[in-house]
Design a protein around this nucleic acid. Structure first.
Length: 769
DNA sequence: CAGTGAGCGAGCTTCCGCTTGACTT
């Protein structure tokens, strides 16, 4: 007989808690929810007051069976799922499925895994809060209704297998709207004037910026002309103390952002690594919206900071969440043992742990104290001034450990210490330059900055951020891509030794790395949903219904009434859309083909975006339209007539070689030559598929053949499937579609067949692990 | 890998939030 059975959500948590509670308690985990709405037949009885049809998913049956057995032999069952809406529902589902007797069932909650918090919670047990459970059921059912009624509309009106939902569709909308802001963005330029000054009294040079930017090159030139004959003198020196405070400890979303900015991790990578650290007991739970730290952690932080940096660096604080949707069932993400500055593990685990350690420690350290100095310089012949700003760090405080990164590009120059100038000091210029600067379009989202935005809007939860980001990419709505920068010309004036020179400089702008771009299907789906379901795609939709869920939770609102009020108009909207809307292909007329005069369209086809010359027709006598696929990165929305027509110039026959035709085209992996049913890639940035000559094509073919000749290092008659090859990363063994690395110190040319087989065996056993 | 683009119809797709492994590269 078990005296006490405690059920929590996660096995790692179970392990920790068991240590705190002693022999009389056995702790088990439910692995999250144990029941969900049936997928078949909608899972909701709409005729019958939204009665949910719950089933136990296949992968949870084993756990449920195990729990049932344990419950039978337990005197008291403690339901210790998280203290939030979902956690309450898990407790309720457990009590229903396990047939728990209310008399020996106790609900307990704690939001930090410390001995005190758990012992305290045991003293303050309660029963299940049915209102909170109902709020969860309303949330679950509403999401099912929205998802399972909207998605089929898309299957009929856009393309099969697409999806829509309260969270993912807003995420796509954000990316689409941002892209349109960028497309429509018109950069404005102005001239930024920067001067380098000398002074007799000081050895250090002074860098200062004109108090205004000039709209035109003429304005800038006029100002430089005025500077040419001016005297410069200091008219004001202002010193102002400032401070910087540390950021709060990590939540899921801020961890994803910083790991993205500082370590270059994708959001799912961050979560996988964090999960490893959590399971190894190295950090607290990684899916949290709380910035709270337990008293135990604060004590430990104080000790660590005092020991490592001194008492003057300690500043213990409790942070408050800004996000309204936060449910705060856990602590912030922190090291379990703050004394451990580094850990054992692989490289990515070490790096992420270090980041969490620094952030946690910094959050409990003193403010950094700075002094900002502003020097104003008069220009005798002009109304504008020059202004120099410098900053001195008087006390580093938390900056000793951690500096938060930002998504904005670092346009502002590092401000250093200024020379000790005083009012009335005279200055001479070394040079003054005026450079044309362009305003930047709003930035494209990264995975992490999209999560940040969703969190601000209260959409999605820590456990769903990473899956949502994956879903919108898997559906093809959004692509994560790099883009090459483009060049643009900027005018630069320079005044030196009383002479103004003008030159044109080239700058690169718009270079993107791992940014989210909407694909054609994402834009089409978004526009369709915005047209017919604007209310659901509204950025405030989630916030509005969350208020109602809160009212259900506090017992002020009946959950079925709330659903009824939502469902009736929504369902009408769905049927109406099915009736009135056209099939959406995103078709756009670009103009006419100058050769034939026929219209040129772009639209979404069965296999992606395509360009089409000529109308579709059932008439046998009219010529069939011509088709060409759009290239990767080309958008229905932005492609020009010229670009579309160029697509039809390929495939192009460039001549014959060895009595076989050479055909140039662009495929999934870029431009290529097809010859004798073999493929040869064109060289990036060197060869142009539209102009490449037969001579050059033959050159490429022969170069590839030469490379292939050198590819085979060894082959064996006895085992034709096995070869020793020369690849991009050096020699390797190829065997039945698998590749194996050759261990260091072995000479690939003298390996025997037995040697190779041994390497393969070792490689296979490694994989199994 | 390197292609496709009509229409019909059967049977399938799909949501969000809680969890962890079982997969592949």
């Amino acid at each position: 007989m078990i005296e006490n059975l405690v059920i929590v959500e996660s096995p790692a948590k179970a392990k920790t808690i068991e240590q705190f509670l002693g022999k009389d308690f056995q702790v088990k985990s439910s692995m999250g929810h144990i029941r969900d709405l049936a997928k078949k037949n909608f899972g909701i009885d709409l005729e019958n007051n939204f009665t949910p049809q719950y089933i136990i998913p296949e992968d949870k049956k084993k756990i449920v069976a195990e729990l049932k057995k344990l419950v039978k032999n337990s005197k008291t069952v403690w339901l210790a799922s998280d203290e939030d809406r979902e956690g309450e529902a898990i407790a309720w589902h457990l009590s229903e499925v396990l047939n728990l007797n209310p008399e020996n069932t106790r609900r307990i909650v704690f939001h930090e895994i410390t001995k005190n918090a758990i012992l305290e919670s045991i003293k303050n047990f309660r029963s299940i809060d049915q209102h909170l459970v109902n709020a969860q059921q309303a949330r679950r059912i509403l999401d099912r209704i929205v998802g399972f009624e909207l998605s089929p509309v898309l299957w009929k009106k856009v393309k099969p297998s697409l999806s829509a939902g309260r969270v993912q569709s807003v995420a796509v909308r954000l990316v689409v709207e941002r892209e349109r802001d960028i497309i429509n963005f018109k950069p404005v330029s102005s001239f930024k004037v920067t001067a380098i000054f000398n002074s007799k009294n000081v050895s250090q040079q002074l860098r200062a910026e004109a108090s205004k930017r000039f709209e035109t090159v003429d304005g800038a030139r006029k100002f430089l002309e005025q500077c040419k004959l001016s005297e410069f003198s200091v008219i004001d020196v202002t010193k102002k103390p400032t401070k910087k405070s540390p950021s709060p400890p990590f939540t899921t979303s801020t961890l994803q952002q910083e790991a993205s900015r500082k370590l270059g991790y994708s959001v799912s990578q961050t979560m996988t690594v964090a999960q490893k650290l959590y399971e190894a007991g190295k950090i607290t739970y990684m899916r949290t919206d709380s910035v709270n730290l337990s008293d135990t952690a604060l004590d430990a932080a104080k000790k660590v900071i005092t020991k490592e940096f001194g008492a003057q660096y300690v500043h213990i604080r409790q942070y408050k969440t800004k996000s309204k949707s936060a449910q705060e069932a856990h602590e912030a993400i922190r090291p379990t043992y703050l004394e451990k500055q580094d850990i054992q593990g692989n490289n990515s685990e070490k790096k992420l742990y270090e980041l969490i350690w620094k952030r946690t420690i910094a959050s409990q350290m003193s403010d950094a104290k700075l002094e900002k100095t502003t020097v104003t310089i008069d220009v005798s012949n002009a109304t504008e001034n020059f202004i120099a700003v410098g900053e001195v760090l008087n006390f580093d405080g938390f900056l000793k450990v951690y500096i938060e990164s930002t998504d904005d590009d670092p346009e502002e120059e590092t401000k250093g210490l200024l020379p000790p100038l005083k009012v009335a000091d005279k200055l001479n210029y070394v040079n003054i330059d005026a450079v044309q600067k362009f305003t930047n379009s709003p930035p494209r989202y990264t995975e992490a900055s999209l999560v940040k935005k969703l969190e601000e809007l209260g959409i999605g939860r820590p456990s769903t951020y990473a899956p949502t980001i994956s879903t919108i990419q898997n559906r093809g709505y959004v692509l994560k891509e790099d883009r090459e920068g483009k060049e643009r010309k900027c005018i630069a004036l320079d005044l030196k030794d009383k002479t103004i020179t003008e030159k044109v400089i080239t700058e690169i702008f718009g270079k993107e790395k791992s940014k989210l771009f909407p694909d054609n299907i994402g834009m089409i789906v978004n526009d369709f949903l915005i047209e017919y379901f604007k209310n659901i795609l509204d950025y405030n939709f989630t916030a509005t219904i969350e208020k109602e869920f809160d009212d259900i939770a506090s017992g002020k609102l009946d959950w079925t009434k709330m659903l009824d009020k939502f469902y009736n108009p929504f369902h009408k909207q769905v049927s109406n859309t099915l009736e009135v809307s056209e099939r959406s292909k995103g078709e756009r007329l670009l103009g006419n083909d100058p050769e034939t005069g026929k219209p040129v369209f772009v639209r979404l086809g069965r296999y992606g975006a395509l360009a089409q010359i000529g109308e579709n027709s059932t008439d046998e006598n009219t010529e069939k339209p011509k088709f060409a696929s759009l290239l990767k990165g080309q958008n229905i929305e932005t492609i020009t007539l010229k670009e579309a027509l160029a697509l039809f110039r390929l495939p192009r026959n460039v001549g014959t070689f060895e009595d076989k035709e050479m055909v140039v085209a662009i495929g999934r992996f870029g431009p290529y030559i097809r010859h004798d049913s073999k493929f040869y890639s064109l060289k990036k940035n060197i060869d142009d598929p539209y102009t490449i000559t037969a001579k050059r094509a033959i050159e490429l073919i022969e170069a590839k053949r030469e490379q292939d000749r050198n590819k085979v290092i060894q082959s064996f008659k006895e085992e034709p499937d096995l070869q020793v090859l020369n690849g991009r990363w050096g020699p390797y063994i190829a065997f039945k579609k698998n590749n194996y690395k050759i261990p260091k110190g072995k000479d690939p040319e003298s390996l025997s067949l037995a040697d190779c087989k041994k390497i393969i065996e070792e490689g296979d056993s490694k994989k199994k692990k």
